[in-house]
Computed example of a mutant assay.
Amino acid sequence: MMPMMPMKPAAVFWDLDGTLIDSDPYWLESERALVEEYGGSWTQETARALEGASLPSVAAMLRSCGVALDDDAIRRRLTDDVLRRERCRLPWVEGARETLVQLDAEGVASVLVTGSPRPIADMVSARAPVGAFGAVICGDDGLPSKPSPEPYLAAARAVGIDPRDGRSMGRCLVFEDSLPGLRSARAAGCFVVAVTGHARVPVEDRSLFDLSIRDYGDPALRSLLQGLWR
């Protein structure tokens, strides 16, 4: 049976990398290039371990692979390289922009919730449909990283929703792709949609999400949203 939200969403929260845009290949290419620059070894296990990780965790992993730079230097190198790639081509996940427009037309606030740094988050927000995002929560905001629920609780506060109100949080729909992100959204008490089309690691624990879609053209999502607008 198709899972249903009880009513129109109070808000929709969007993860960025692998969920809103297919940017994970950019991060992987940048991370791999940095490891190889310092003569380190890059494996598929390394790539899987980095999925959804915060930048401090990424920096620690890259240092363990031989990158002789401190956290700030690794962060700058990766951010600058990914930002350069995204400015050249921003790879929106199929149907994402159209869904943002639909939500805005229905009066539903969207918030971008990402562990990526502010320059990347703001650039993507600026290139989204006009007025699509009511707020941006990013990795530079001083919050605990996903899988902590704090980023999604902060997103709720940003659009006037009391995160202590479980009923209201249950009406917040989250699009996520990584295990840390799904755990964060679930811990925040949201209705969670797993976006699987560009995920590095398959999500097999169905307790972490209410609905699974490949992209935003997925019939399961269209059916869910159409039911909410009636």
Rank of each mutant, 00 (worst) to 15 (best):
A135Q: 12
I137L: 09
C138Q: 03
G139V: 06
G139C: 11
D141T: 14
G142Y: 13
G142H: 14
L143Q: 05
P144D: 11
P144R: 08
S145Q: 10
K146Y: 09
K146N: 09
S148V: 10
S148R: 06
S148F: 04
P151R: 05
Y152V: 10
Y152G: 04
L153T: 04
L153R: 15
L153Y: 02
A154N: 03
A154C: 12
A154Q: 15
A156K: 01
R157S: 13
A158P: 04
A158Y: 06
G160S: 11
I161D: 07
D162K: 10
D162T: 13
D162Q: 14
R164F: 04
R164V: 08
D165P: 08
R167S: 09
S168E: 15
M169P: 02
M169I: 10
G170W: 05
C172T: 09
V174D: 02
F175W: 09
F175P: 03
E176P: 03
E176D: 07
E176L: 06
E176K: 05
D177H: 00
G181F: 00
R186F: 03
R186E: 01
A187E: 09
A188L: 05
C190K: 04
C190Y: 04
C190F: 09
F191L: 06
F191I: 07
F191K: 01
V192H: 01
V195Y: 00
V195H: 00
H198I: 01
R200T: 07
V201K: 04
V201I: 13
P202A: 12
P202Y: 07
V203G: 06
V203H: 06
E204V: 14
S207P: 04
S207A: 15
S207H: 13
L208M: 10
F209L: 05
F209D: 00
D210Y: 09
L211V: 13
S212V: 14
S212Q: 15
I213M: 09
D215Q: 06
D215R: 06
P219S: 13
P219L: 11
A220R: 15
L221I: 11
